[in-house]
């Protein structure tokens, strides 16, 4: 365009409100990429106004009962419907106690009034490199359930993101559930979010960490995943292997930091320089590992 137009009103689209999952999938099958799923709307409506997304149809799934459940089955893990809000997740005792890294990420995501609307599935589907929930789901090894009239498939979260704002979802698919397996017994989790002001900001760098059995090398599990350091949220898989070795903790931390540096490619943007992000990757990772491995309080 040769002119700048910043809209106040939303461009036109049709609003569809299916009452069942079957109906929702039918609509998605019929309209494909012209239809977009509206769960919380906190990202979608901004993108529509700014013309970043131009749906002809908006499918509101909040009326679909099947998608509104947050379930926990001992031994199997969490099952989070795509219409479940972040507030519901934040309020869940089970999530806080057993899936602490997810809870920690969710409570730092956006702000309180937005979390009453925004959903976990939406945060994933938006595929922002700055997604706060994605790193947590990555270290927890979550799976995304994608459904269409053709059937249902489960995609590990690490295979879900394609590029900035792009996923491996097909145009007729929608996220129906997110499965989060039971984390390793006695694991600790933490989400470290670096922001420009101390509260309510997009992550300049986000680091999710999960650790179990810090003192026993062979049983030790350490996982790290990142936001805002690459075109997609990334799990640095090498870290888990590194910590299987029986070496002094500080040495392992140094190795892990090096592995993370290799797997990340931060850029300079309006939220921070690449140099600063690299610093956060180094110091933040080291700090988080020190905390998770109980070197420091």
């Amino acid at each position: 365009m040769s002119v700048l137009v910043f809209r106040t009103t939303l461009p036109r689209f049709e609003y569809l409100r299916p009452k069942s999952l079957g109906e929702a999938l039918e609509l998605k099958a019929k309209y494909g990429g012209d239809a977009m799923i509206l769960a919380g709307g906190t990202d979608l409506l901004v993108d529509i106004r700014m013309r970043a997304k131009k749906p002809k149809y908006v499918i509101d799934i909040k009326g679909v009962k099947e998608l509104s459940e947050l379930k926990y089955v001992e031994g199997r893990g969490l099952e989070i419907g795509s219409a479940v809000t972040l507030s519901e997740i934040e309020r869940s005792k089970v999530v806080k106690e057993k899936f602490h890294v997810l809870w920690d990420a969710v409570r730092q995501l956006a702000d309180f009034p937005l979390r009453t609307r925004a959903t976990l599935a939406g945060n994933i589907a938006n595929a922002s490199p700055a997604s706060d929930s994605a790193p947590a789901l990555l270290v927890l090894g979550a799976e995304v359930e994608l459904s269409s009239t053709r059937g249902t498939r489960k995609l590990p979260i690490k295979k879900f993101f394609k590029w900035v704002k792009q996923t491996y979802m097909e145009p007729d698919e929608m996220i129906t559930r997110i499965f989060v397996p039971e984390p390793p017994r006695d694991s600790k989790g933490m989400y470290l979010k670096f922001t420009r002001i101390s509260v309510e900001d997009l992550s300049v760098v986000g680091i999710a960490g999960l650790a179990a059995n810090p003192k026993e090398p062979e049983k030790r599990i350490v996982r790290l995943a990142y936001a805002s350091v690459a075109p997609t949220p990334v799990l640095v898989e090498e870290v888990e292997e590194i910590f299987k070795h029986d070496k002094p903790v500080k040495e392992l931390i140094r190795e892990a930091v090096e592995a993370v540096k290799k797997k990340t490619s931060p850029i300079t943007d309006v939220r921070g320089t690449a140099e600063y992000r690299r610093h956060l990757i180094e110091f933040g990772t080291a700090y988080l590992l020190n905390r998770l491995l109980e070197v420091i309080e």
Partner: peptide, 16 residues
């Protein structure tokens, strides 16, 4: 309406 004004604004073309 503002909506009409905005829809129209998007159709303006300028040669610089």
């Amino acid at each position: 309406s503002l909506e009409a004004a905005e829809n129209a604004a998007e159709l303006i073309e300028v040669e610089y």
